[in-house]
């Protein structure tokens, strides 16, 4: 059974973003298809994280159109983006350090918890049934990412590689249609990277989650991506299959810095 890549789920057209006089992104267009792993690469300061922030509504581009799931999107804050099914992880881990792994992942379900706080304060009844259903889903993710042994451990006590995995778990708890990963492998050793790669591939295969990721490790990017966008100084300088991008002279010049 082959993996199916569907229609365009996210279409970015002529996006430009500037902060005062600084142009972060200039006239960038690319799209993401249903079920694919799409990577954004580029040297430091190329605008990769800005691009991700545009997608999930942290920044609002001055120009350009964003079409998500067939609908043009107007100005939107991250909360609304999350409600539409966009989840993300961060370059610098953004977990609640004092809370357990389980509680952290449960926060990922927040948007789906329908009962108000009064029901929750009452505990019994519908709120409890909800909680059990959510917990079940969270346990499936814990099982999937093989973090059963740290379920009750406060996040702050975990090594870095595991914290990254917990962050991925929290993003998955929101059952996203589109998952944004900001350098999921930064600062990891080879073994941790291999594990993370496998989890990303498994998430994509098993649940068909569409993934956009930023990554510096070229080996990883070339191995797991379906298509790659290359940014440099806020401009798009390449877009295509990993192999095409790898052999594009302009990309090599800008990003890899190698003599060709």
């Amino acid at each position: 059974m082959a993996r199916t890549i569907g229609d365009v789920i996210l279409d970015l057209q002529n996006i430009s973003l500037s902060f005062g006089g600084v142009k972060a992104l200039t006239n960038i267009s690319f799209n993401v298809r249903q079920g694919e792993i799409r990577s954004i690469i580029g040297p430091n300061g190329a605008g990769k994280s800005s691009m991700l922030n545009v997608i999930n509504g942290v920044y609002h581009p001055q120009e350009g159109r964003i079409i998500f799931m067939g609908k043009e999107r107007r100005k939107m804050n991250p909360h609304e983006a999350a409600a539409q099914g966009i989840a993300r992880t961060f370059q610098n881990i953004a977990l609640f350090k004092g809370m357990t792994v389980l509680d952290n992942i449960m926060t990922g379900r927040n948007l789906m918890m329908k009962r108000n706080f009064l029901w929750n304060a009452l505990y019994w009844g519908p709120a409890q049934r909800d909680e059990i259903a959510h917990r079940k889903r969270v346990e499936e993710i814990i099982d999937f990412l093989e973090i059963q042994h740290i379920r009750k451990v406060p996040v702050g006590r975990l090594p870095y590689g595991l914290q990254k995995r917990v962050e991925l778990a929290r993003a998955l708890a929101a059952e996203p249609k589109l998952l944004l990963l900001d350098e999921p492998m930064a600062g990891m050793n080879v073994e941790e990277k291999q594990d993370m790669c496998r989890f990303i591939l498994d998430v994509n295969e098993q649940w068909g989650t569409t993934i956009v990721l930023i990554e510096h490790d070229m080996g990883v990017v070339m191995d797991i991506s379906d298509r790659v966008v290359v940014l440099d100084y806020g401009r798009k300088i390449g877009d295509g299959l990993p192999n095409e991008v790898k052999n594009d002279p302009e990309v090599i010049k800008a990003y890899l810095g190698a003599v060709y």
């Binding site: 059974m1 082959a2 993996r3 999937f144 496998r198 498994d202 295969e205 098993q206």
Partner: peptide, 8 residues
């Protein structure tokens, strides 16, 4: 069956 989807 985890991860076995694409084995043929």
């Amino acid at each position: 069956p985890r991860g076995m989807l694409h084995y043929d």
